[in-house]
């Protein structure tokens, strides 16, 4: 554990809790992509099956359980409790275009051919692109609520901080995992446009709206 990874994890946790808070407080999931949330739930489920097979630390297990619980909780709020507020007309990105390539790639570029490892690899690839339906939705509606913008910023920062963590781990532990690094870089690049808008608009107190 190093400071970059800890900050990354906390940023990830903050993002997930912010989203739950927003939905609960406003009693609405308007502006949130159910498809992105579904993809994240698939990601956590595929990756954290190792809760049953390997133990890393209490911190690790607790975080995994929190991420899993929160993502299923988010789906419950979006598709059941506050379903009438879900803006599915604007959530029209085809997620099979993301799931199928991620699955195919996880059979081609993988450390070793075991079910657990392929699932883990699939989750890494899928996570890299899982935000696309949400970004697509923001571009379609042309705006995002401020709290949704904070959520996206925290979520995007998490993988960016992980990149610093990987650089640090490479020099201190000789740790190098090209699958996570390449996917992490793709994931962070997808947020760049959003980061720019967040810094130039939201941080100056304006609402995020596209020109």
């Amino acid at each position: 554990m190093n400071i970059f990874r800890l900050c990354g994890d906390l940023s990830h946790l903050l993002a997930i809790l912010l989203l739950l808070f927003k939905i609960w407080k406003t009693r609405s999931c308007a502006g949130i992509s159910g498809k992105t949330q579904l993809l994240f739930t698939i990601v956590y489920t595929a990756r954290y099956l190792d809760l049953f097979t390997s133990f890393v630390s209490v911190y690790n297990s607790v975080m995994k359980i929190v991420f899993l619980t929160a993502s299923y909780g988010t789906l419950y709020l979006m598709f059941y409790k506050f379903k009438p507020t879900y803006d599915h007309n604007h959530d029209s990105f085809r997620i099979l275009y993301l799931i199928v390539p991620a699955l195919v790639l996880s059979f081609i570029i993988v450390h070793v051919y075991t079910v657990m490892e392929i699932l883990w690899t699939f989750s890494i690839y899928l996570e890299a692109v899982a935000i696309m339906p949400q970004l697509f939705m923001v571009s379609r509606t042309g705006e995002a609520e401020t709290i949704t913008s904070h959520y996206l910023f925290a979520l995007g920062s998490y993988r960016a901080l992980y990149i610093l963590n990987w650089i640090y781990r490479y020099y201190t532990e000789d740790f190098l995992d090209w699958i996570t690094i390449m996917a992490g870089i793709v994931q962070t690049i997808l947020y760049c446009d959003f980061f720019y808008l967040y810094i130039t608009k939201v941080l100056k107190g304006k609402r995020l709206s596209l020109p």
């Binding site: 990830h12 990756r47 890393v56 630390s57 995994k64 450390h111 070793v112 075991t114 490892e117 883990w120």
Partner: peptide, 10 residues
């Protein structure tokens, strides 16, 4: 060689 990699990140 046996694959013994444990993914220690989240």
């Amino acid at each position: 060689e046996e694959f013994d990699k444990v993914h220690d990140e989240l």
